[in-house]
Design a protein around this nucleic acid. Structure first.
Length: 734
RNA sequence: GCGCCGGUAGCUCAACGGAUAGAGCACCUGACUUCGGAUCAGGCGGUUGGGGGUUCGAAUCCCUCCCGGCGCGCCA
């Protein structure tokens, strides 16, 4: 709505510039002045034009203003044509406040004319956690950024497909399997005991427990959960590799077993029985592969539950194993070779490798070695190569010689429900289906297809920039320049720990991570799953929920009959808001140095501050209704139409009107701190007005109707930003 | 060495090339017999890392130097 006013004003000024000042095809941008007392909209174009026209900028602005009125048409219903020339030559306009407020109340702030007609699909890939241990706060940043991007695109009317890529064949999963099969029994038992108290101290008993729990659907869902077990187990394995180099032979063997796969008919029970029977002797490969699949799937379920707590859902889980089974790389390899993009190095350090040459690309200029190895000398395929094949599929470019699109098979992975835009996602049943890929291309998804998007956004931290650029370059080299441009790496800086946070973790877990003094002297410490250094997403959420719950109990303690479930529900909402906001509030290029005190803060620049503004706004209307002066949206709009809106109320109305602009700007720049900051600004303006403009106790009915109109608008806008866009739930009370 | 990102108040962070560089935290004063104090008002706090340039105008763009982080694997 406001965007439309700006566009039309810009066009009107352009016409004047052309007709009266002889400027061909002028670029006219309408700005927003920094302070509202200067005006609502501004044109700064007189300043750069002054030189060319050899006239003072203020004279240029005046000339434009003198001829502008006839070009405005019915825009004057909402824009005051009496502009002012201020400062060095700014042309400042004012909007008609009452009519604009009335319009916003009647039609909402959302302008949906934006992407109508050309609604092509966007794939957003995010989360992508290795399925070998619990999710940590770094994964949270990825998932929240990706999720908010998805929410913004959908709000703007774009169809979006959300993919969470599962690397189920990598060494990390193999390491956990090595842990179960080869780690000394006492170490294994120590990692397992807190999660499976019934397992006992022996490997046989532990494997037995795994099988039993899987058989009775209890492998996942406890607290602590399976991923917590792996979180403990994984560092023990990597530590042993370092301490005992021959132990690494187990990793190679398990990795090989995973690559070999297992027959479809092999049950986990049978596999575990074989593994237990093999004790000490040669490990049966198929059984190990079966166990690896079970480990990966169990961790995946845990991750989905963790993200589900935050309201983050997915459409498809592409599995790396299926990329292998379906021969995606073989086909990509043929396409690359036919295009002459890759060659078999015959000598030098890359001898016998298939390499992709980057030497001709300006992006890679100055590199000492501009060749990227895609196929190793032993014939195995690198991660980047698989990623190229996957990216081609996502863009619909992985075509077979007959022109058909090479595709996965698809199976339902689980059902789920989400009862509101910012509600948690619950798995198990529900009307929605989360699909996974499978090796059998005959199995098709119900309704529609996956992949083949016009635009693909990969949410991956900035450390992966180099391989991401290689993937993009490969797409370009295959002749798909436009598709390469539409392959976007959504890069963000990592989450690290403040030294204080590290010490608190060590104290809480009664361990030492063995960090050197110089590491702890740095501004932040990188997390490391391999070393077990990190804050688990679920632990942080648990802590947030318990702190919020305690706070809610104190605040609402006077209320009788607020059952524990109601307190828990409010606490969950507050915890989600605090966490999601913390992940969003700062720019994506800045390292997020995690600090417990900051993360657990509920006052000031935090999620709960925003939530509280929404709760307060709604509370006003509850009170009004109880006193019989609630008014109606139409009635308030009518009252607003002719009302004189004072400056302070207007500031809030105007900020509300800018919301679609902020959403577009955030989605366009992938900078969601803009939207978070916008929400904070609205909440701040509201909280200030709340004290100065009581509604229930307004001096007269006209004043009350205007305040009601403004707060009604705010309540609607903040709810729209928080729940569907930022995924921050608004609690009943707090 | 090459590349990318950061350096803004004591701390954590904002600021389409635009008008007087803003918030929160911390510290100090204050605020409802009123729609909830997870709030609000006020105070303190700045040579935007240094130096050059571009222009009507630079925290923002260019050059250069300094400091910090991360990349540049036949790892994933």
């Amino acid at each position: 709505m406001l965007d439309d006013v700006r566009r039309r004003l810009g066009r009107a000024i352009a016409v004047v510039l052309t007709q009266h000042l002889g400027i061909a095809a002028p670029a006219v941008a309408i700005d927003i002045p920094p302070r509202r007392e200067l005006g609502d909209l501004a044109w700064a174009g007189a300043l750069p034009l002054a030189k060319a026209l050899r006239r003072p900028p203020r004279a240029v602005a005046e000339e434009v203003l003198n001829h502008l009125a006839p070009e405005l048409g019915d825009l004057t219903e909402i824009l005051d044509p009496e502009a002012r020339i201020e400062g060095p030559g700014f042309l400042n306009f004012r909007l008609r406040r009452g009519p604009l407020l009335a319009h916003l109340l009647r039609c909402g702030v959302r302008t949906l004319a934006l992407d109508q007609g050309k609604a092509s699909k966007v794939i957003v890939e995010h989360t992508n956690i290795n399925p070998n241990k619990a999710a940590h706060i770094g994964h949270l940043r990825n998932a929240v950024l990706g999720d908010v991007l998805v929410r913004c695109l959908r709000w703007l009317g774009r169809p979006v497909e959300v993919q969470n890529y599962i690397d189920d064949t990598g060494v990390q999963v193999a390491d956990v399997v090595v842990g179960f099969l080869h780690l000394p029994e006492d170490e294994l038992a120590r990692a397992v005991a807190p999660v499976w108290p019934e397992a006992g101290p022996t490997r046989a008993g532990i494997l037995q427990t795994l099988a039993l729990r899987a058989g009775s659907d209890r492998l996942v869902g406890g607290s602590p959960d399976f991923d917590d077990l792996c979180w403990e187990l994984y560092p023990l394995v990597t530590r042993r590799y370092d301490a005992d180099p021959p132990f690494a032979a187990h990793r190679a063997q398990i990795l090989h077993a995973i690559e070999g796969g297992y027959p479809a008919g092999l049950s986990l029970d049978d596999a575990i029985a074989q593994l237990a029977a093999a004790a000490g002797a040669e490990v049966p490969a198929a059984a190990a592969a079966r166990l690896a699949a079970a480990v990966a799937e169990a961790n995946l379920h845990c991750h989905l539950r963790t993200m589900g707590r935050l309201g983050i859902a997915y459409d498809l889980l592409p599995h790396e194993s299926d990329i292998l089974h379906r021969g995606f790389w073989q086909r990509a390899f043929e396409l690359l070779r036919e295009a002459g993009a890759i060659r078999l190095a015959s000598e030098g350090k890359n001898a016998h490798c298939w390499v992709f040459s980057l030497a001709d690309s300006p992006d890679f200029a100055g590199m000492a070695d501009a060749d990227k190895i895609l196929v190793r000398s032993n014939g195995t395929v690198t991660y980047t190569a698989k990623d190229i094949a996957y990216q081609l599929w996502k863009l619909g470019l992985l075509t077979d010689p007959d022109g058909s699109r090479r595709d996965f098979g698809y199976l339902p992975f689980t059902r789920f429900r989400q009862d509101g835009p910012a509600r948690p996602v619950e798995y198990g049943d529900g009307e929605r289906v989360l699909w996974r890929t499978c090796p059998d291309p005959g199995r098709r998804p119900a309704g529609g297809e996956f992949g083949a998007a016009e635009r693909v956004v990969n949410v991956i931290d900035v450390r992966q920039s180099y391989p991401q650029k290689v993937v993009r370059e490969a797409i370009r080299t295959l002749g798909h320049a436009a598709a390469a441009e539409n392959s976007v790496h959504f890069a963000y800086e990592m989450v690290a720990l403040t030294p204080a946070a590290v010490r608190r973790l060590e104290a809480a877990q009664k361990v030492s991570f063995g960090l050197a003094e110089e590491d702890l002297a740095k501004p932040f410490v990188e997390m490391s799953g391999r070393r077990g250094i990190g804050v688990k997403a679920d632990s942080l959420l648990d802590t947030l929920e318990s702190e919020a719950g305690a706070s809610v109990s104190v605040r609402l303690g006077h209320r009788h009959g607020l059952p524990p479930a109601a307190i828990a529900e409010r606490a969950r909402a507050i915890a989600t808001g605090a966490l999601r906001y913390q992940m969003l509030r700062q720019g994506r290029n800045r390292v997020l140095a995690f600090d417990f005190d900051e993360a657990l803060a509920f006052e000031g620049d935090t999620g709960p501050y925003l939530q509280y503004s929404a709760v307060r706004a709604r509370k006003i209307f509850d009170k009004l209704a109880a006193s019989g002066v609630a008014g109606t949206p139409d009635g308030d709009a009518l009252a607003a139409q002719g009302a004189a809106v004072p400056d302070d109320l207007w500031e809030l109305v105007f900020a509300c009107a800018r919301t679609p602009e902020m959403v577009e700007k955030a989605a366009g720049s992938l900078e969601f701190s803009l939207l978070a900051g916008h929400a904070r600004e609205l909440a701040q303006l509201f909280h200030k007005l709340y004290h100065e403009h009581p509604v229930l106790h307004a001096p007269d009915e006209r004043t009350r109707a205007l305040r009601r109109a403004v707060f009604r608008l705010f309540a609607a806008v903040i709810a729209e930003i928080l729940e569907p866009l930022l995924g921050i739930p608004i609690p009943q009370e707090m």
